[in-house]
Computed example of a mutant assay.
Amino acid sequence: MEVTLLGTGDTTGTPTVGCDCDTCTAARERGVERTRFSVHVRNERTDESLLVDLSPDFRTQFLARDVALLDAAIITHIHFDHLDGLGNAFRLVRDLPVAAANETDPETGESVADTVRRKYDYLDALSITGQEPLEPFELCGFDVTLVPVDHPPLVCYGAVIECETGAKLSITGDTNYAIPDASRERLADPDLLIADAIAPASFCEHHPLGGDHHDSEGVPRTFGTKHMTREGALALADELGAATTRLVHVSHFFSADEAFDDPLAVDGERYRL
């Protein structure tokens, strides 16, 4: 299993358009980018490629990285920075299986699969399949499981991708720290954990809602309500027993002197599991 982090940024990416903060300035000076979230997973045994979320930066990501075009895709939730790159399937692939959860979202009255199917009904190349959360299915020769996480107000899912070699990739998806126990069990013991960590815990003081899910020392593990802090993501990684952890969905709210330090990921990182 070969994993390439195509997009490691939050909704605005880093550098953020129109921003001259120290972090965005440093990113420009270093030639470093965090585009919107997407992960490319190649099955080296079958030479198939699975894409987890389709960033609106799809074209830039595929031109910048030496990765094969996708053979199938997973959509974790319907926020534009994870979904709107799907339009790039037009004229690029003849038949693209797309997997998404079939659980109805009370907020929208549709499942993620339903929304993708409706929004992209003009793309004949797409074949949308609704999948039951927490139930494994096969895609690109991998065993894949969509796991419910907590990203209010919409339903959202992480993904567990396992190869017959025993390699395991766990992706939290967009989530706060309150991931359900059943999902934590599925995410546990990965060779590589890709975890949402939008900001340092110290930055919660600037969020209108502050932080949540504090640890025993009062450190917030959730930034506002929707995303984990760096500290929350690292606490989760410890709990899950991750062999390697990379933090994604990273914003420009990290100070310039720490924004590019491990384990904060940047675009283009590649791992072989």
Rank of each mutant, 00 (worst) to 15 (best):
G141V: 04
F142P: 05
F142R: 08
V144E: 04
V144R: 03
V144P: 07
T145N: 06
L146G: 11
V147D: 08
V147M: 08
V147F: 11
P148S: 05
P148W: 02
P148T: 06
P148G: 02
V149N: 01
V149R: 01
D150H: 15
D150N: 15
P152G: 04
P153A: 12
L154C: 07
V155Q: 12
C156E: 11
Y157H: 15
Y157T: 12
G158W: 00
G158D: 05
V160S: 08
V160M: 06
I161P: 11
E162P: 08
T165L: 04
G166W: 05
G166R: 09
A167E: 14
A167L: 09
K168C: 10
K168T: 11
K168W: 07
K168S: 09
L169F: 11
S170L: 09
I171V: 13
I171K: 05
G173S: 05
D174C: 10
T175I: 00
T175D: 00
A178T: 13
I179P: 01
I179S: 03
D181V: 13
A182H: 13
A182Y: 06
S183H: 02
R184L: 14
R184K: 15
R184W: 01
R184I: 03
R186N: 05
R186A: 14
L187A: 04
A188I: 06
A188N: 11
D189I: 09
D189V: 11
P190I: 07
P190H: 09
D191K: 09
D191H: 12
D191G: 07
D191C: 02
D191F: 00
L192Q: 07
L192M: 02
L192A: 01
I194P: 10
A195M: 01
A195D: 03
D196T: 13
D196K: 13
D196P: 10
D196I: 09
A197C: 03
A197N: 01
A197L: 01
I198A: 12
A199Y: 07
A199L: 10
A199R: 10
A199G: 11
A201M: 04
A201Y: 08
A201G: 08
S202P: 07
H206W: 11
H207A: 09
L209P: 08
G210Y: 01
G210H: 12
G211C: 05
G211V: 05
D212W: 06
D212E: 13
H213S: 08
H213D: 13
H213K: 11
H214A: 10
D215T: 04
D215L: 07
S216Y: 07
S216L: 12
E217G: 15
E217P: 12
G218L: 02
P220K: 09
R221M: 10
T222L: 04
T222P: 02
F223M: 07
F223Y: 14
G224T: 00
G224M: 01
T225F: 14
